[in-house]
């Protein structure tokens, strides 16, 4: 047992979308479908100043994943390594997971009619490779790590709450973000 999740160094992210493209290319995703998407978001902080951040987001493999809780067939499940995956044989394509997820991670494929999502490249990891997005990052700002093996001291450097994201209290995402000092 382990709890794998993405560790994302936002201070190094250049917003280049290479992660998104590697993911689309490797998984042959149809237009409009993403397992990971990077964007540059602009907002005004409490002082009224311009803030801009890059964010590369995928499924956060939440501990309290609503997609699992609400899946009527048990297709959506935690794998042994803590990541969340969908069993295509059990999925009936009802779409519950796609709207219950606050991060919008699961997607319904137009081709198969079933739910699809990031499984942190399980097939690649079985071959000893990194997930596509991790391997694609130009500044090496993405990692997939066993969060159980990260010390509490190190964990304190990270957050999983960003002004652009839903509250982590809802789903307890397995996501650690290193943010810029503002």
């Amino acid at each position: 047992m382990a709890t794998y999740g993405f560790v994302y160094d936002q201070t190094r992210c250049i917003g280049c979308n290479a992660c998104q493209m590697a993911c689309k290319d490797g998984h042959d995703l149809e237009m409009g479908l993403f397992f990971r998407k990077a964007a540059t978001l602009e907002y005004t902080d409490e002082q009224g100043s311009l803030r801009v951040m890059h964010y590369s987001g995928s499924c956060n493999h939440c501990q309290d994943a609503p997609c699992i809780a609400h899946c009527p067939t048990g297709a959506m499940h935690h794998q042994d390594d803590g990541t969340v995956a969908v069993d295509p044989l059990k999925c009936i394509g009802c779409g519950t997971c796609t709207w219950i997820c606050p991060y919008g991670a699961p997607k319904l494929s137009h081709k198969t009619g079933r739910s699809m999502k990031c499984d942190a490249c399980l097939d690649r990891r079985k071959e000893g490779k990194e997930p596509l997005c991790v391997e694609a990052c130009l500044t090496h700002c993405l990692q997939l790590r066993d969060l159980d093996a990260i010390s509490d001291e190190e964990k304190r450097r990270y957050t999983n709450a960003l002004p652009i994201l839903p509250s982590p209290e809802k789903t307890h995402p397995n996501l650690l973000i290193l943010t810029k000092k503002q």
Binding site: C16, N17, A18, Q20, M21, A22, K24, D25, K129, E130, E135, A136, C137, L138
Partner: peptide, 19 residues
């Protein structure tokens, strides 16, 4: 793209090369 651990630095493709 480049995931050769012996390369320092790696010559990784950006979004253009990946596509």
């Amino acid at each position: 793209s480049d995931c050769n651990p012996s390369h320092a630095p790696q010559i990784r493709a950006c979004v253009r090369g990946r596509g």
